[in-house]
Design a protein around this nucleic acid. Structure first.
Length: 239
DNA sequence: GCGACAG
DNA sequence: ATCTTGTCGC
């Protein structure tokens, strides 16, 4: 009887120690100052060689309510390993450049409902491709001290040429000489996505993983599924 | 003053 | 993001 219990997955939730603390209800001026201070702590390094779970994060808003969704997949995107949702009141307005202050307070409680711990997190938004080089993916990655990067659907800052029409084509996202990220075509003939580093990952690894996780759709599976869950409340498909 | 502006 | 109908193409 004991041996049977031990063989099962006994973990019901994942513990998420936060690696820094600061107020979230800050006026825009102060929030921007926090971003500028934390940006100096970001680390750019290769992804771990052993990855068995990747997570996608997304947040949707409806009638003053915010719903955060996390979907955890196998590293090749083949299987859904876990998912979680958290809903609450909207407590911060949308301000370009301050998206993390609106979304992270909802993402954290959703993450705490997971029973599988991901080694990498994909965000629906930018990382370093941000006015102060501290987008949502940077903030979440640093807070969790976990590899994290952004895959955004539209540009926030920077300039770029149009990448080739074929899937896999890419073009640098620049601010003068500074490389902010890469515009990546995940589907032939379809509008590209904007990949940028968040924390503890290299741009090359982020691009490779993005393409590996987006074999069929424009958005990588983790983010695409998280988006579906945040809007509908459940995973797509039969069931 | 005017245009831009992740989700 | 959200508000909304039909439509073109694989």
């Amino acid at each position: 009887m004991v041996g049977f219990r031990v063989a099962l997955q006994t973990t019901t939730t994942v513990d998420w120690p936060l690696h820094h603390e600061h107020a979230w209800d800050l006026p825009p001026r102060d929030a921007a100052a926090v971003q500028g201070r934390l940006a100096g702590q970001l680390v750019e390094s290769p992804l771990p060689t052993s990855i068995d779970a990747v997570a996608g994060v997304d947040v949707s808003v409806c009638s003053g309510r915010v719903r955060a969704a996390i979907v955890v997949l196998a590293p090749d995107g083949s299987r859904v390993l876990d998912h979680a949702v958290w809903e609450g009141d909207v407590c911060y307005p949308y301000v370009p450049g301050l998206l993390s202050f609106r979304e992270i307070p909802a993402v954290i409680p959703a993450l705490e409902r997971l029973s599988v711990r991901p080694q990498v997190v994909l965000c629906d938004g930018h990382g370093r491709a941000h006015p102060r080089r501290f987008g949502l993916a940077c903030h979440l990655g640093l807070l969790l001290d976990l590899p994290c990067f952004g895959v955004a659907k539209t540009r926030l800052v920077g300039t770029h040429d149009g990448p080739g029409r074929l899937r896999g084509s890419r073009s640098p996202l620049l601010d003068g000489d500074e490389l902010l990220g890469t515009v990546v075509r995940t589907r032939t003939g379809v509008k590209p996505v904007f990949v940028s580093v968040g924390h503890r990952v290299t741009l090359g690894d982020a691009i490779d993983l993005t393409l590996a996780l987006a074999p069929r759709y424009r958005l990588p599976e983790p983010t695409r599924l998280a988006h579906h869950v945040s809007r509908s409340g459940r995973l797509p498909g039969p069931g």
